[in-house]
């Protein structure tokens, strides 16, 4: 009996596998065109995101374009330890981290609060007008936004003039290191608040109206309704977006940084990405060194993402995986 069982098991497994394979084939036959349609997407990820990863090996080599990726000599962790010993290491980490934390504290909740406020507006025409007006800045190219910022924040710029009324010293605001983060975050909120609120508005409309009625019956005012019905209703959305945000934490949009900073504001403005840009492309061609920094940044990102996901799963069962 036992013998038979042993003999039977592999055959059964094989048969199961075969059936599974057949199912895939059948599925493929039925949905042939859908599969074909997926090919470009797969190729996109393969060609644009996976194949270039091979290039990351130059972080462990002394890369020279003439010798090529495979011909350049291995140097191990040299570039990583150089970076760690660099005078700028802690400053870069600090700046990258702080801008991100501030963004998380101020720029992340802004569209949520904005969406909640919009949600309370009952006049449809007013709501729509506000929405449209706040979407618009999102579609302005970053280079134009920065051009505007540079002009408005110059010594005789429009924003500077307004701030001077409030008692600020008249000066080129972008040449002051202490204002850089504020400018960066505030302009970010201005540009993306409307666009960012769309997804929350969508989530808001998905909340069952009966819940509001029930809470009204229980004697909840408008504020209580927001706290006990609306916010819990969009919580999963907030958490998912927060995790995604944390996953991208270290990789800031460096375009905006390099368009706004100058040596005078490096103190607060220089982040990992802008440092990589300067050392790798602008002045020196330190390809290996900057690749190492880039890789380092990606590792931190990855760790943050895993951590955020884990915490969130523990706390409220919402997670990416």
């Amino acid at each position: 009996m036992a013998e038979m069982h042993v003999a039977k098991a592999p055959a059964q497994k094989r048969w199961k596998a075969l059936r599974k394979r057949n199912r895939i084939i059948r599925d493929f036959k039925i949905n042939k065109y859908i599969y074909i349609m997926a090919v470009p997407v797969l190729l996109y990820y393969l060609v644009i995101h996976y194949i270039p990863m091979y290039g990351a090996v130059i972080a462990f080599k002394d890369f020279s374009p003439v010798k090529g990726v495979s011909g350049s000599p291995w140097v191990g962790w040299k570039h990583f330890s150089n970076f760690y010993d660099s005078y700028y290491f802690w400053r870069l980490i600090r700046n990258t981290f702080l801008i991100n934390v501030y963004q998380l504290l101020f720029a992340f909740p802004a569209p949520i609060i904005f969406a909640l406020m919009l949600n309370e507006i009952s006049r449809q025409w007013f709501k729509r007008t506000v929405q449209t007006v706040t979407y618009l800045p999102h579609f302005i190219s970053i280079i134009v936004v920065c051009g505007m910022l540079v002009d408005f924040l110059a010594r005789d710029g429009f924003i500077t003039h307004v701030l001077v009324w409030f008692g600020l010293e008249q000066t080129a605001l972008l040449s002051k290191a202490e204002y850089f983060r504020t400018i960066y975050i505030a302009s970010d909120i201005w540009q993306h608040i409307g666009w960012g609120s769309i997804i929350y508005l969508a989530a808001l409309s998905g909340i069952n109206p009966e819940l509001y009625e029930a809470s009204k019956v229980d004697g909840a005012g408008r504020f209580k309704q927001v706290v006990h019905v609306t916010i819990p209703g969009i919580m999963p959305m907030i958490v998912i977006l927060l995790i995604l945000k944390i996953g991208n934490m270290m990789e800031l949009g460096y375009e905006k940084i390099i368009l706004l900073y100058n040596p005078n504001t490096y103190e607060t403005a220089d982040v990992l990405a802008s440092f990589i840009y300067r050392r790798g492309l602008e002045s020196g061609s330190e390809y290996s060194y900057t690749t190492a920094i880039g890789l380092f940044q990606s590792m931190i990102n990855f760790m943050l993402l895993v951590m955020a996901n884990y915490i969130s799963r523990r706390l409220n069962d919402t997670s990416l995986w």
Partner: peptide, 23 residues
């Protein structure tokens, strides 16, 4: 290559500090 490595650190620092001293 050694010079490039040293000087790119030095030059950033120099630029920043000279500005701070002047300001």
């Amino acid at each position: 290559s050694e010079l490039a490595q040293i000087m790119s650190d030095v030059k950033t620092y120099r630029e920043e500090m000279l500005l701070k001293f002047i300001y």
